[in-house]
Each structure stands twice: as structure tokens, then as C-alpha cells.
Amino acid sequence: MKLLRADREGFHFDLSPREKRLLFDLLKFYPRVPAAHQRLSRTAQPQPNDENQRLLDDAVTAHREENKRQILAWLNEPERFKPTGAGHRFTLSAPQMEWLLQVLNDVRVGSWIALGSPDTEAGEKITLDERTAPHFWVMEMAGFFESALLEALEGE
């Protein structure tokens, strides 16, 4: 995935056919972080009638539904990816860049949770086997596309 240019319209990328397939596959994994993962407080004990936590849960659910709707629209919008000789060209506005980053990071973090939340910074190793390899692959691929988007934003 290569940034061609950034202008008023947004960020214009070139995508190889393989990258397009990968990106589409990744988007289908959303949402990947378990719904109850996000907590409002780390110290307060969860209460069954915690209004603030309930409001947060509702907001997260609504946000996810909206993201899912957008992903479906994206995947079914033939005009979004314009074929070029060697691949596809597509444009993302600044808000769409933010949206795609959020979706990809959900997929990445969700895959990491599925791996058992290994603390790789503390030297914990990820053992690859039939069960863990797909999660690891999804986590790494999401990171690849995130890095490409962040690099594009860096030069903004």
C-alpha cells in the first residue's frame, strides 16, 4: 500500500490486488475486541446497575454498529477502488483515515486478546500453532495497514 499523494480531497493510495484482498479480509473480522472489554474504571468494582458503565457500553455498541454499517458500505462500493494496470487506487478523506485506523486497531487488539494478551515487551513469547497462527496473522496484517496509514498522516 503506497501513498501517492495527499491533497484537499484526501489521501490517495495505490493498492496491489493482494493487499486489497488482505484489507477486505481484515475488515470482515470487525468487531474483534470482546464487547465487555472496555471498562470505565479500573479501581471501582463493577456494579450491576452502574449507570455510567451502562452508558459507556451503549455508546460502544452504537459506535460498533455504525462502523459495521460503514464497512459493509465500503466493501460493496465498486467505485471506491478504481482499477489501475497493476492494482487499485483509492482515496480516503481525513475522517475516513481515522475511522479505518479505529477499525484496524480493534481487529489488531482483538487478535492480541485472542492470543491471551501476551506481554511481548516483557519477553513473553507467542507460540505459533494451529490455534494461534490465524490470530497472529490477523494481528500483524492489521498492524501493517495501520503503519501505512500512520506514515501517510505523518507527512500531512
Binding site: 494478551s117 501476551p118 498492524g143 495501520e146 505523518e154
Partner: peptide, 14 residues
């Protein structure tokens, strides 16, 4: 904000 080692440093900064 708490550390989740999975998050890219550039992402958190962004």
C-alpha cells in the same frame, strides 16, 4: 491510559 503492548507507538501518539 494504560499500556497494552500491542498498540503501535506511532498509533498511540497519533
Amino acid at each position: 491510559c494504560w499500556n497494552d503492548p500491542v498498540n503501535l507507538m506511532a498509533y498511540v501518539t497519533h
